[in-house]
Amino acid sequence: MSVSFALARSAGRRVLWFLFVGSLIVFMIGPIVWLGLRAFSGLWLYPQLLPKQWTVNGWRQVFNDPNLSHSMKLSFEFAPVVTVASAAICLPAAYAFSRYKFPGRRFLLISLFAVNAFPKIGLYISMAGVFYSLNLMATFLGVVIVQLIGTIVFMTWIPAAAFSAIPRSLEEAARDVGAGPLRVFFRVTFPLAAPAIFVAMILSFLASFDEAQGTFLVGVPKYITMPTEMYTLVLNYPEQVAAVFALLLAVPSVLLMALVRKHVMGGKLAEGFQLR
């Protein structure tokens, strides 16, 4: 009796489990499916499960609209520049966090995270005030700086964790056979941390690519990137066009995340948050 009871219970559990997973899938995949359908749909009215007409008009419109294609070009200009600048600034900091004990180390490490913990719009507003007085509003540099904010936490924490995971003796061994400090970094430390740095650069690239609030505030009217263009699109264009654009915006994310999936799953991100 107890066996059949257990069976019944496990069957009930299985049903619950399927329901749970099913609703998760609907929640996660549903919007993307809808977006995909919308991008190719003509007329699509409420009770219909699938659109009646199929069209690529939305796509044509996006690629023909000079504003939209210009914003795509801009996005692909900003993201690499921001990523490289972020690496140049943050990697030395990451190394310092990992290898040296200095006063305020812990505080600084946490404060990097704090940037992401609070609503950024407040930060952007106060930055805008400073930017006005420095004549950085609506400049390329201004947008780069505001986009850097969102990349710092990735670019510092993940490589710092990777540097910490490299036994110091590997660096010492290189010193021992005659390498100077810079050579040790470029021949030993950097190659060993490269996978994590790569992940950090991808995440920074995406953070910059998707950044809308700050870019909008600092960049308008001269620098309208893809995410900022979305504001206009949602309000002023047909729904299909917005759907197409949203898909395009997602393409780099999906591709790059697929590329680094192995490393991200491998816990590089998690390691960053375990840094002491």
């Binding site: 036994p167 003796s169 590997l170 010492e172 061994a173 290189a174 010193r175 021992d176 056979v177 005659g178 390498a179 100077g180 030993v188 190659p191 060993l192």
Partner: peptide
Amino acid sequence: MSPDKRPTAMVFQNYALWPH
């Protein structure tokens, strides 16, 4: 003198071979 300048060579406890 720094390690790269002195005529000593160390075998580390964990060997410290460069994995790459």
